[in-house]
């Protein structure tokens, strides 16, 4: 064992997570030299004296609580609104049925709204073609709702979950994706983009063309071009845009990874996500080397093999799903 390993043990001792076996190892080391014992004393003192590290806050509690209240209000409102709306719909439906009964089939036919289609993908990815020719790839668990015919001036679509859109071009009818909770929308004329949403965020990644992404509060929103990604934090109502280094987060739709002059730090990240593995890059000088390769559904070890060949690195398996790359140089 090296000195650093003993510092880890000393830390475990101080934080109270040391095992009896480790304690025995540590004790032996402490007794082996006075310098070791002194190091232990120092670390203990530093540990103890660091306890009070905390910035003290003296916030205006009225103002801060006001913000909490405001958030509670905005959150409760939409719930009430939907409730009222669904009640109204129910009443409307009842009236419509009564009317149908009184005036017969022809009258009822006239008040009927265009049929709403709903396609969901509970068990796997699914491809849907909309009436205008737009293609939608639904990721597992997603759901899209759209009218049987796009009759109006826009093409409105509601989305739950994650989906990739390849929108048929029609400059006269903007295509609009509304998120399930009404917290954002994407408007386009014709393009390819991906929408991912969860309770905290909505992320839009544009592969081709141009889209306008608007949160509920801003009607204008941000315009995203190809290679841009925007993440809306719902709670903070803040949009952060970034350049997309790779489109590999869309690999669920495209079916493979692709790297074009991608820095290794990003390559490692993408591989970890795609293969659900832990990959360690031992040589930090390699982080900014760039890598170019299309990888279509190869086993991870094959990928590591070719990566290692390119940069004279060695790879080894360090755990069930863990790998380590060492050595190498950018040339």
């Amino acid at each position: 064992m090296q000195d650093n390993d003993y510092i880890v043990l000393l830390h475990k001792h101080l934080s109270g997570e040391i095992s009896p076996a480790e304690q025995t190892t540590l004790d032996a080391w402490l007794q082996s030299s006075t310098e070791n014992a002194r190091l232990a004393d120092d670390l203990r003192l530093a540990w103890e004296k660091s306890e009070g590290y905390e910035k003290t806050f003296d916030t205006d509690l009225d103002a801060a609580f006001g913000k909490v209240q405001a958030r509670i209000r905005t959150e409760e409102q939409p719930i009430r609104a939907t409730f009222v709306r669904s009640q109204l719909l129910r009443v409307a439906a009842t009236i419509a049925l009564l009317l149908a009964g009184v005036w017969g089939f022809r009258h009822f036919y006239h008040v009927e709204a265009p049929a709403q289609m709903v396609v969901s993908s509970p068990t796997g990815n699914k491809e849907v073609t909309l009436p205008d020719g737009t293609q939608v790839w639904l990721r597992e668990g997603a759901e899209v709702a759209y009218p049987a015919a796009f009759a109006g001036n826009t093409r409105p679509v509601q989305l739950k979950g994650e989906a990739y859109f390849k929108v048929a071009h029609d400059a006269s009818k903007p295509f609009r994706v509304q998120m399930e909770d009404g917290k954002g929308s994407v408007e386009v004329l014709g393009t390819q983009f991906n929408v991912r949403q969860n309770a905290e965020e909505i992320a839009v990644t544009v592969r081709e063309g141009k889209v306008r992404f608007a949160p509920e509060t801003q009607s204008n929103g941000v315009v995203l071009t190809a290679g841009k990604k925007a993440v809306l934090n719902k709670a903070r109502r803040q949009i952060v845009t970034e350049n997309v280094l790779t489109f590999n987060e869309l690999s669920w739709q495209s079916g493979g990874l692709e790297f074009v002059r991608t820095p290794l730090r990003q390559v490692v990240r993408d591989l970890q996500t795609y293969y659900n593995a832990q990959i360690t890059l031992g040589n930090s000088n390699m982080l900014d080397c760039t890598y170019t390769a299309p990888l279509t559904r190869q086993p991870l070890e094959k990928v590591l093999e070719s990566l290692s060949l390119t940069y004279q690195m060695q790879w080894e398996k360090t755990g069930a799903n863990a790998y380590r790359l060492t050595g190498g140089s950018c040339q």
Binding site: I7, V8, A46, W47
Partner: peptide
């Protein structure tokens, strides 16, 4: 952790 502990010791 090792890094932090070493640096805190330096301060000490």
């Amino acid at each position: 952790i090792t890094k932090a502990m070493k640096l805190l010791r330096e301060v000490l």
